[in-house]
Nucleic acid binder design. Structure first.
Length: 642
RNA sequence: GCCGCAGUAACUCAGUUGGUAGAGUAGCUGAUUCGUAAUCAGCAAGUCGGAGGUUCGAAUCCUCUCUGCGGCACCA
């Protein structure tokens, strides 16, 4: 409904104060009133029960607008806590905020809930809804509130109240026998909460700190209508269908197994995809003046001590002991690249020197974090280090950002988030150096009219950095690209050059990656496209499907022509029905399926259909090759014209 | 690493209170030569993640351990 604004002049009767609900009910159709969850008084969200004390401007807050949904979800979080307390009076309530698409509530409860407890909790929630308790606000002093919760054994609530700043109003909301500390506002009664579902349980640390106790977190979702709830649940299902680990099985790309946790077994088709991407980036880097190198997988521990990695990340490095020497498997390539830079005496004339490497890195990621390709222990980055003079930092940054956007566009990603992380409290280098470094990076971004967020204090101790994140079709954000300025590593590993005056000068290093880990990027790509990769990336681009063995000869000829045009072809001559062949290749996400029967063989043509089921009808081989070549070469710029 | 859950045939899963494992798909064999998302029949297939324990007897109960899944913390 259109936003309604009610100026209250003349509506407020000082002797008998009206509530927000009463005033709104005078203007709003009773049926519509059922969707009003709260009011906005001079722009401030308030409960419907709020008495109107003075003239103001009042608007209704509908359940399906963003603020209204937030209120619904927050009230549903209270409902959840209410149900939990009813089932487990000894449980302690802590916090229950609204999050994207839902809410959660953290409890201290022994033993912790498991997923089987959710239906029972949900049942009690629905009972409380049926009881339709009014939700009432009241205000307490700090001491009253602390005493109130302490007496009820709610130590966490009391702790939260102690930390509320002086002068802030402390309000509680009551529904039946349950009361919770809350700023509000809330829906007027529990009967208003209908379209919700508890989705999962998980452990979560009190205050997000792993040194604290682990609480039990219950996640839920709530919406303004059954349709909206159903739509959300469908969206979740859709996302599950896109899971890259599931797609990998269907498409026969890779697998994991117990003996190599977090490390990928790439199958033939998956490795083909991997090489397509690696070769593409390799070409881009070469064109941008990078030199590709290759360095050892493991290096003596002493080098990592000198570089500072052993100190900071030692526990996350794999190591091997042989003949009393300890080698650390590299978690990154940079110290090795410095070794290459350090061979001989470098002149300023050689700078900038850009060293790239597709080297396998290993990081002992904590076991609980592994997640298919998206968080692996062995991976390859499109990694490179630029050794340059301080003056070259900005132009190098500009060139890098251009290259990065070029690459992202080819992969079909245009929605990029940029964050600049500036000097942290713990850092090395003087302020003047940091001023210059931060300015070089931010000017490089501004130079290209890119908008970016600043994350103050989030830079690495050795220099500021820019992070580039992609937003995929499901709206999820993935950090991929990075550009980091580093003054420390050259210092620690003694990397310098001779400047134009013949003096030795410390070189500046830029760490940079565009895709980040190739493994992770492939996982993102698969989920982004639901496995249906753009033509240029598809490991198999065309499947030729024969109707009977009478067409084998013609199909072979067609395959040869397509292969000569540089297309990746699968020739399916099996004695199977065409329906089965189409089904299998569709599941494998082959972009183009070509049916070859007696008709096509006789006419020397092709019956073409897309992976998504669109039938393109009969095409000549010549036109087919031309169309596909064009589509392939367009890469990310392709707009499929159906 | 922490909390919860799970691990049964190549894959997806079923297997009531303990009584020596079952389906669909894939595979193999045979038949079928077929027009746009599953042709039919037969056969074969499992130390029930691993180790230990309880028991006359364990996929099932207990302990330990590994791996995976969902979160949390972490992510150079």
């Amino acid at each position: 409904m259109p936003k309604m604004t009610i100026p209250l002049h003349g509506e407020v009767d000082q002797t008998v104060p009206l509530s927000v609900r009463e005033v709104l009910a005078r203007r709003i159709d009773p049926q519509v009133m059922g969707n009003v969850v709260a009011g906005r008084l001079d722009g401030r969200p308030v409960d419907l029960s709020t008495p109107l004390a003075s003239d103001a401007v009042l608007e209704p807050v509908m359940g399906d607008e963003p603020l209204g949904l937030e209120i619904l979800r927050h009230s549903t979080a209270h409902l959840l806590a209410h149900a939990v307390k009813r089932l487990h009076p000894q449980a302690q309530i802590t916090i229950g905020p609204v999050i994207e698409d839902g809410f959660y509530y953290d409890f201290l409860v022994e033993p912790p809930f498991s997923a089987e407890d959710l239906p029972g909790i949900e049942r009690v929630m629905r009972e409380i809804v049926a009881e339709d308790w009014p939700i009432e606000r009241r205000v307490m002093t700090r001491d009253e509130a602390i005493r109130f919760f302490s007496e009820r054994g709610e130590a966490y609530k009391a702790e939260i109240i102690r930390e509320i700043p002086e002068g802030e109003v402390i309000s509680l909301y009551r529904q039946g026998e349950f009361q919770d500390l809350c700023r509000g506002p809330h829906v007027p009664s529990t009967g208003r909460l209908r379209d919700f579902k508890l989705t999962q349980v998980a452990g979560a640390y009190w205050r997000g700190d792993s040194r604290n106790v682990m609480l039990t977190r219950v996640y839920g979702t709530a919406w303004a209508s059954p349709e909206a709830l159903a739509q959300y649940l469908e969206r979740i299902e859709e996302a599950e269908k896109r899971d890259h680990r599931r797609l990998a099985k269907l498409m026969d790309l890779f697998h994991f197994q117990e003996e190599a946790p977090g490390m990928v077994f790439w199958h033939e088709t998956g490795w083909l995809l991997y090489r397509i991407i690696e070769d593409y980036v390799r070409g881009k880097l070469a064109a941008a003046g990078y030199r590709e190198v290759h360095t050892p997988l493991m290096l003596d521990r002493t080098l990592w001590e000198r570089s500072g990695h052993a100190d900071k990340f030692g526990t996350q490095m794999f190591s091997v002991v042989v003949e009393n020497r300890e080698y650390a498997i590299k978690p990154m390539n940079c110290p090795a690249h410095v070794q290459i830079f350090n061979q001989g005496i470098r002149s300023y004339r050689e700078l900038p020197l850009r060293l790239a490497e597709f080297g396998v890195c290993h990081r002992n990621e904590p076991s609980g974090t592994l997640h298919g390709l998206l968080r692996a222990r062995a991976f390859v980055q499109d990694d490179a280090h630029i050794f340059c003079t301080p003056d070259q930092v900005e132009p190098e940054a500009v060139a890098f950002i251009r290259l990065l956007f070029d690459v992202y566009r080819d992969f079909g990603f245009t929605d990029i988030e940029i964050k600049l992380s500036t000097r942290p409290a713990q850092r090395v280098g003087d302020d003047e150096l940091w001023d210059r470094a931060e300015q070089a990076l931010s000017q490089a971004l501004q130079h290209q009219n890119l908008s970016f967020a600043i994350q103050p204090g989030e830079g690495a101790f050795y220099g500021p950095k820019i992070e580039f994140s992609l937003r995929d079709t499901l709206g999820r954000v993935w950090q991929c690209g990075t550009l980091q300025l580093d003054y420390v590593l050259p210092e620690r590993l003694g990397a310098s050059f001779v400047n134009a005056h013949g003096d030795k000068e410390r070189v500046v290093m830029l760490h940079r990656a565009i895709l980040g880990s190739l493994e992770r990027f492939i996982g993102i790509l698969l989920e982004h496209h639901a496995g249906a990769l753009p033509l240029w990336l598809a490991p198999v681009q065309v499947a030729l499907l024969t109707i009977t063995d009478q067409q084998d000869g013609y199909a072979r000829q067609v395959a040869r022509v397509l292969e000569q045009a540089g297309l990746r072809v699968c020739l399916d001559l099996r004695n199977e029905k065409i329906g089965l062949k189409i089904r299998e290749r569709s599941i494998q996400r082959v972009p183009y399926l070509v049916v070859i029967g007696p008709k096509e063989a006789a006419a020397g043509r092709l019956a073409v259909r897309r992976q998504n089921g669109t039938n393109l009808g009969e095409i000549s081989l010549e036109n087919f090759v031309a169309d596909l070549t064009r589509e392939r070469n367009r890469r990310g710029l392709d707009v499929v014209e159906d």
